[in-house]
Design a protein around this nucleic acid. Structure first.
Lengths: 247, 247
DNA sequence: CGGTAGTTTGAACTACGTCAAGGGTCGTGG
DNA sequence: CCACGACCCTTGACGTAGTTCAAACTACCG
């Protein structure tokens, strides 16, 4: 059998609560929303945000909490999920630095729709949604970017619905691995490593399967030489093969 | 057994291609996006739209077509769907007058993501997306409304993902009927009638099931006295019962 | 009325979930 | 640095919701 290796996943473990002013400005410049704005504008916008730090595993907010703010990830990874009555979690999205989460809307929906959990220790820039809306009103170009981002997420959600409705667990898992590799992948000696701690449970929660099914499929992929895996990590060695499976 | 009745669904069959100027203005005023704008502004916006008419069953555009315009439904019903390689369709949304479809985005994604089909004969107001974006830039309040609408659709898509991942076909169908009744329901002698032609196939495409499963579940609901059905129509007689089933 | 398209129902099959036991990996504390 | 316990992962056996295939039935339209 293949001898498993120690986890190759390297997570940047900046102390939470530490985003230097320089880092903040760099982050805000690199966020798609604000890219292209003049420096002074971004410096002004920077004043409206405040920092928040969370430890790995910490819950940032829970679905149903009163929705007050929007957050932009400066460092770390956040997962967005929903709990179900039967105890199964649904992992809706996995976010990286530069992406936002929280609420965008007016008081219309005053509760968070889903739960946000820090997968690693994270540093985030938070802003009250009233202030964020004032930014949108002041800079229409930012509004356009935000609209594009949300439209993109809607398209992604529709693709997920399509997969859940028409594909097998194997196809969905293959497609999910490819998507994750595309977003989080890094070249590594064992292959294209998905740079985030990723358990079978989480993979199951992303694909609408059970952990057991995820494990079986992953084992098969490994036997077929498509991937390398270990505890909490997966690396893709044959993305073309996976792509064929995913159809 | 219950004697089935002739379809009670009444579809307003305005001739396509006929939206009087009065109707156009009324529609534009009632669209959530533009609600609250001064009359002159709406009159100006009206100039940017042009009318399009389609017959029942007609395909408005297909996923992959170059995406040029955005449309607002003035009259009729439109379904948004995706075709899959295995031949199964996924019905993503069912739209009524005042709702939009088409593209919002800049050239980023220059193809329609899904297919739009007229369920009834429809009259729509179309606008090139460049012109729509100029409206958004001119009226930031409209941008906010559009953003809210898209956010709402994203939340709805996430709810669908949750249902597909964690509920049985029976629960999903019950939930879908309730949602449809909420959007399209009208009081009728047989119960709360879903005012649109709705086949078992379409219900299956909305719930990620097969037409056979949809038919079996619907038959059971009828036996349990929850609904009344016929060819292409469903009326809810016990919404509380359905709600309990849907959890 | 006769045909077409939507619907119902049955019977066999299968992907996946469930339950349960065992094995590997990691971190922690002695 | 080794050993223990916790957590994650794997694998098997079995049950079942839902699909598939196929045939009969029925509402509606010309």
């Amino acid at each position: 059998m293949v001898k498993r290796r120690k986890t190759p996943v390297i997570v940047e473990t900046t102390e939470p609560h530490l985003c230097s002013t320089d880092l903040r400005l760099t982050i805000l410049h690199s966020v798609p929303f604000f890219a292209g704005l003049p420096h002074e504008a971004i410096a002004g916008i920077n004043q409206l945000f405040h920092e928040k730090g969370y430890d790995a595993g910490e819950t940032i907010y829970v679905a149903g909490d009163p929705a007050r703010s929007l957050m932009i990830i400066a460092e770390g990874r956040v997962k967005l999920l929903r709990h179900t009555s039967i105890g199964k979690d649904i992992l809706l999205d996995l976010l990286i630095p530069g992406e936002f989460f929280g609420t965008l809307s007016t008081a219309a929906e005053s509760e968070y729709q889903d739960t946000a959990v820090a997968m690693t220790s994270i540093c985030a820039l938070a802003i009250e949604y009233e202030k964020f809306r004032s930014i949108l009103l002041e800079y229409p170009a930012v509004s356009m970017k935000v609209l594009d981002t949300v439209s993109g997420r809607l398209a992604a959600a529709h693709a997920t619905i399509q997969r859940l409705s028409s594909q097998t667990a194997e196809q969905r898992i293959a497609a999910t691995l490819l998507r994750l590799a595309d977003k989080l992948g890094e070249k590594h000696e064992v292959g294209l490593l998905i740079q985030t701690p990723l358990s079978r449970d989480e993979l199951a929660d992303m694909t609408g399967a059970t952990p057991e099914t995820a494990s079986r499929v992953i084992s098969q992929f490994q036997k077929d030489g498509l991937i390398e895996t270990g505890r909490q990590w997966i690396a893709i060695t044959d993305s073309q093969g996976l792509r064929t499976l995913a159809e």
